[in-house]
């Protein structure tokens, strides 16, 4: 019997070959190469020194963190309100809402950058409209800045976040609302004291998905900015692809920094989430 069972392990072999070759070894390789000097192949921590001391990479980390955090915060806020509206409304409009969310959930990258250029670029339709109608906020909108980028990132965060949050609202029972109402709580109080704390674990885990999604977004930023605004994913790709010699060490160090940012964010959201699940954060 024992022998017969182990034959079945053979069926696991393709899975192992694929993941070892294209996931595990490449990722370990990146971590190892981050400790190897690009000049002489010696073992060193100098790559990390470069990452944290060179202005370009400092800027890239700052911009990436700023754009990811802001767009995730805005995304989660809009998604929360959107999912709550869907929870209260449902019906025909709710169905349309769900369909559109699903439709645009793949709308990112190059097409998104293009649509925003047509809309809000230097000669964009909205910008020209703003000039004609004298709306300064539109006329002077600068898409090619970190604020403009944040605004564009919010677009692809909304469908993702809303679709992730909507199922969580099923956990809020209508009876709770009625009970709170009977005890004299308004709707606002109900959401503040009951709804949001109950949803907090879902909100936090969605936030960390959004953050990772924005941090790693490459195509949208690349199509719009090329290299005008330093961002981590673009700097990483630049170390490996392009005219210059491949800088495995430096690119590896940048990759490790980016992965660490994601891991730290997951750790933070998990920690806060656990406090909410235990009920410690609600007083």
């Amino acid at each position: 019997m024992k022998k017969k069972r182990s034959i079945y392990l053979l069926a696991l072999l393709p899975f192992l070959v694929l993941t070892v070759m294209y996931e595990i070894i490449p990722l370990i390789g990146v971590v190892i190469s981050s400790f190897i000097s690009d000049e002489n192949g010696a073992v060193t921590a100098a790559n990390y020194g470069t990452v944290f001391s060179k202005l370009l990479y400092q800027k890239a980390m700052q911009n990436s963190l700023k754009i990811s955090t802001l767009s995730s915060l805005a995304g989660i806020l809009i998604a929360f309100l959107g999912a709550r509206s869907y929870y209260e409304k449902r019906g025909k409009l709710g169905q349309i809402f769900m369909t559109i969310l699903n439709m645009v959930s793949n709308f990112a990258g190059i097409p998104l950058a293009f649509a925003y250029m047509i809309l809000l670029g230097n000669a964009g339709v909205m910008v020209q409209l703003g000039r004609k109608m004298g709306i300064d906020a539109l006329a002077n909108f600068n898409l090619y800045s970190s604020n403009g980028m944040t605004f564009m990132y919010i677009y692809f965060q909304i469908p993702l976040a809303t679709l992730l949050l909507i199922p969580a609202f099923d956990g809020i029972r209508k009876e709770w609302q009625e009970a709170a109402l009977l005890l004299g709580a308004g709707k606002g109080t109900f959401w503040l004291k009951v709804g949001i704390p109950v949803l907090m674990p879902s909100i936090l885990s969605t936030f960390s998905v959004l953050f990772a999604n924005a941090l790693a977004a490459y195509a949208t930023a690349y199509a719009l900015m090329m290299n005008m605004l330093p961002l981590l994913p673009i700097q990483i790709a630049g170390c490996f692809v392009g005219d210059v010699k491949m800088q495995r060490g430096l690119g590896g160090a940048l990759s490790v920094v980016m992965m660490l940012m994601m891991v730290v964010m997951i750790f933070i959201t998990n920690t806060i989430s656990r406090r909410f699940q235990k009920g410690e954060a609600v007083k």
Binding site: L27, F240, G251
Partner: peptide, 14 residues
């Protein structure tokens, strides 16, 4: 969690 950029450069470099 790793996503496209890091995956592509790590496979490329290998």
């Amino acid at each position: 969690t790793v996503q496209g950029v890091i995956l592509s450069v790590s496979i490329l470099s290998l």
